[in-house]
Nucleic acid binder design. Structure first.
Lengths: 229, 229
DNA sequence: GTTCAAAACCATACGTCGTATGATTTTGTA
DNA sequence: TACAAAATCATACGACGTATGGTTTTGAAC
């Protein structure tokens, strides 16, 4: 079944080649997007430029948005790796998360133009699943990271253990998603602030504080008068 | 620039007639959807059946999804009105909200088939706004209701006043949105439970409870062994 | 090496959405 | 009655995404 004979190369070549051309096509597409704008570039064009038939292109990327998603996902993976070191320097969970959110907001701002198709793609997933196939793998990257952070915070007693870390990650993602959506509609609003507020809300909750409440609430993290280090 | 009111705003009758045919078209469309399924019904067909040119149909509903949205929005308005009485019988904010969420979950389950295009529409809004026009008016109905409830709860000291009611409504909506999306992917999960959990999380927050915390946390509202009715 | 079935690929046509065009009709108002 | 704005119409079109049916690669088995 799985033990390969020493006759020739492992069977993974086909798959590697596939991922290779996938990456190739995505790169070409992104180059075109950068030059002419997402809307202006047609799938036909990408196929021609990539020297494949349109049908083949679609076999790799079932919708146009998937091309954007592929590229952005790669960027996210890269970015997260690059941030790992700095993340580790932050001592508390809240501080780590706030740092990550600031970075994330900046990244969103930089990629603004691609967010509409990207978000559309992430939902296209859920839609397609209606008809059968596809597991997500889209935003899983960031979701995994968030889950890990929440889980660690639970073990460090910074976050309540009652709620599964997965659900917390998931909840935060949707709050952030809402912030992004709002920000796309009103570009002049402060995305970073919105991210931090969403996080603070998730941590503190909305219930009125009773007098005897001993919890120290998490601020929105904006440069605060007190504590200038 | 072009503001002021230089010419004439659409006058009473014209506007009424427009809304009338809009409703007419939406009804026809929905009937067809019910009979043949959303995907199977083409815009061309709807136009023919409604005895208008395709371009005219599009002038009323800029995307196919808008037809679904129109109908569902009407249903929501109706439903909310019908629920108003029962809502008032609940004494506390938490109880009111939980009641509403249960109803909402049931409604979502009933309309399951239409949710994908409906959600797509709500986002198409944000997308279209990129290019210029449209203010939402889509989910505003339910958003208004939530905002009002939160504001009342703030005045009754059941919810912290630090966060604007609008933002709370907005946050809850996105948490619920996440729950719905997840449920669409995994239909066997319990949407009602997910709604209630989302709400509980929003109220209680995720931060670890310090020993001296006097806040009584909101349960998920599921029929709980202890304290039954 | 020859054979074979699966897969990847190709060219092309097609259905549908949504937009654009330019002419024609309706409607409110001057 | 005149006229400009809005609504409607018929039609063509560009682009997305699917379907079809045939051709080439490819991995492996004989």
């Amino acid at each position: 079944m799985k033990d390969a004979k020493p006759t020739s190369e492992p069977t993974g070549r086909r798959q590697r080649k596939r991922q290779q051309t996938a990456s190739h096509l995505a790169t070409i597409a992104f180059t075109l997007f950068e030059e002419y704008g997402y809307e202006a570039v047609t799938m036909e064009r990408i196929a021609v430029e990539g020297d494949v038939a349109k049908a083949t292109l679609y076999s790799y990327f079932p919708m146009k948005e998937a091309l954007v998603a592929h590229h952005l996902r790669d960027e996210i993976v890269e970015g997260m790796a690059a941030l790992a070191d700095q993340l580790a320097t932050h001592r508390s969970f809240v501080s780590r998360m706030q740092f990550l959110l600031r970075e994330s907001a900046a990244w969103h701002a930089a990629k603004r133009a691609y967010l509409p198709p990207y978000l559309r793609y992430l939902h296209g997933i859920a839609d397609s699943a209606e008809n059968g196939a596809i597991q997500d793998a889209g935003s899983t990257v960031t979701w995994n990271a968030l889950t890990a952070m929440f889980r660690a915070a639970q073990q460090g007693s910074e976050v309540a253990r009652a709620i599964p870390a997965e659900q917390l990650a998931w909840s935060l993602q949707y709050l952030l998603y809402g912030a992004v959506t709002h920000w796309l509609l009103y570009p002049d609003t402060d995305l970073t602030a919105a991210f931090l507020q969403a996080f603070a809300l998730l941590m503190n909750g909305a219930a009125a504080n009773k007098p005897g409440d001993a919890r120290k609430s998490i601020s929105t993290g904006k440069t605060n008068p007190r504590r200038s280090r």
